[in-house]
Write a protein that binds this DNA or RNA. Sequence first.
DNA 1: ACGGGAACTGAATCGGAAC
DNA 2: AGTTCCGATTCAGTTCCCG
Lengths: 401, 401
Amino acid sequence: MNIVRQMDCLDGLATLPPCVADLVYLDPPFFTGRSHSNTTRSGNKRYAFSDVWSESGSYAGFMHARVSEIHRVLKDTGSVFFHCDHNATHIARSILDDVFRSENFQSEIIWSYKRWSNSKKGLLQQHQTILFYSKTADFKWNEKRKGYSPTTNLDQILQQRARDVRGKSVYKRDAAGDVVFGSEKKGVPLGDVWEIPFLNPKAKERTGYPTQKPLELLDLIVELVTDAGDLVVDPFSGSGTTLVSAATLGRRYVGFDISADAVALAKSRIDDPVRSSSMLLQKGAAAYVKDDPWVDGHLLGFDYDRVHRNAGIDGILRSSLNGQTVCVRVQRQGETLLEAAAAAKSAARKKPGCMFALIQTEGGLFDLKADGLMVIPSPALQLARIGNSGEVENLKVAKAA
Amino acid sequence: MNIVRQMDCLDGLATLPPCVADLVYLDPPFFTGRSHSNTTRSGNKRYAFSDVWSESGSYAGFMHARVSEIHRVLKDTGSVFFHCDHNATHIARSILDDVFRSENFQSEIIWSYKRWSNSKKGLLQQHQTILFYSKTADFKWNEKRKGYSPTTNLDQILQQRARDVRGKSVYKRDAAGDVVFGSEKKGVPLGDVWEIPFLNPKAKERTGYPTQKPLELLDLIVELVTDAGDLVVDPFSGSGTTLVSAATLGRRYVGFDISADAVALAKSRIDDPVRSSSMLLQKGAAAYVKDDPWVDGHLLGFDYDRVHRNAGIDGILRSSLNGQTVCVRVQRQGETLLEAAAAAKSAARKKPGCMFALIQTEGGLFDLKADGLMVIPSPALQLARIGNSGEVENLKVAKAA
DNA sequence: ACGGGAACTGAATCGGAAC
DNA sequence: AGTTCCGATTCAGTTCCCG
């Protein structure tokens, strides 16, 4: 049973028998009060949907009817994941509490991401919410664990625990007072805050459909509560991300959408799935950070932002000098000043109008101003030059009186 | 007006005049259906409160009355931060939407933290929610910004933008076809997902009171929407974290709690506030800055032995200069050059025959050679001096041929 | 007062260019 | 020839300004 059909999911769900679905994921309009549209990269197709309601009651009524149908088609071991943002969380909670009963509430999942900023007064929105309810207490659950984060003190986790006389948890110690190590680690249990990068503007996965969700998010949900061969239902399938995830993970799928364009897009994506995996998620943010102590140390005292990906620039000063942006490059150990200057000039060629400061850590005097490079000697280099110049003759601290 | 009083906040708030508070933070009992209790580390005192409610209706009624009082005491430029967990968010949203009106909803803040726990079926809860409403659109807001993501192409985004014929954003180019650099960057605005460690179990800050919040969280909230001298109100003050934060940040405060034990605890914490980094209180924010990286960074490139425990000497060079041993001292942040020189000279008195190099990180030109001190400016200081001298006029990178 | 348009924004991947 | 560099891209964005 693999279906993608253009119809209102209220009618669509009614065509399904009761108790057949293992997972219903829905990404309905968020009650944002505006209509959303987007044009494909090639500019030849425009996708749009409306999320305008007269009042919250009509939205609630609309959702309640559909959530009731969702409850009907779910197996007793099945679960529903309701995707929304702050505009609708409280409405969705009330509806789900009513239809699924509040004791079947499992988690309020926070999908958090970094995104473009703007000049909003207040805080930037950087998360959406996924409400997770099961139909019964006996829901299907595939436990997932993550590797330990590099910052975790692995030694401590591996230590066995005990309780002290007042019931406080403490690390277990043997008779000699040494800590006792446990047998094995299982990894950290998955939490309810998921940091998954937002679908990137350049991602191959992008279809041009507004509000498209990353496959990595849907894969996680599908794997948590279904096995191969299980049935995944998406009543607001949109660009079809849920169906692509289900199909590629060997689940059966049923999707409905009111838009014919969306259904066509979803079908073509299922036939030819494009998945882009996030480098950030694979490597972790730490992999992007260049924390070279040599460079960072020599940049102490500057008010700057560190540049992580340009061979000729180590930092850019926050305030400009005479209206010019200032880029700073530190001469590396084992690098000649001319090599450092070449790297800076190569970067400078593409940044006309910028001033470049080169922090020299080794070598003799050079005047590179003609090339637009200011050379600034490090303290150690300055002292070495004073020494060579013989200026230090008899420079001693005056003896105490 | 600094008050901590044992009473129901409904009565307590009624004693306040209208429109006086700049911030109301509240962390009311959650609708969890069980009683919290905890034992302090010394094991001699037991704090407990009841958050058992027969049905959500009475909880809503209880909260609505108090939120209405909160609205009354808030200034027009004031804000309320309502701390709740997933059992109460939708109830709190409804009450706040009703009393403050939904257009004054500002943010659903996610406080996320890492937590260890025995695996239960499902996802480990690792966040709490704070609802942020303002009384009016014209609320007080102190913008806070953070550094750029390491994945950001910082050298690129500093360039100015324009729009092409299709309305797509592109990088601006001048008549010569060169990219144009923009004005100074301020950093990234703060988002609505705050990762703040849960109170470290070993932290001194811990009082043993259940549901105690980290000071870091309260400090952030207080700084975002109040200035020094403003009034902070906490109607459910509990262990008094909000009041401690307000007091140490120079805000006035009013707190109520129904428990006499809680009020006593809060008062004692305000009188003798203990922070995880407790030195902060005496020294101010500058104490956050660690001296060691500052010194070590500025000594990079020297071949030296590090000297601790001597206020006047940070390092002694391994090779002498003209037969004289060289001691180096780095001017600290917040220390004048003359203070640094005095420290060095005091040390020099006990080391006659030594030469002293002082790495200057701030301030104007000084000649201290008469005292046997060589002053060496740090790279950042050198650049600042070049800037002030006006020498940089038209010092730009030569354009590529 | 209201609506529409322009200006501004940082994230993070892709893919062609450079080395 | 593979690897690294870096320009292009665009958003369930917002504010401000003008008519």
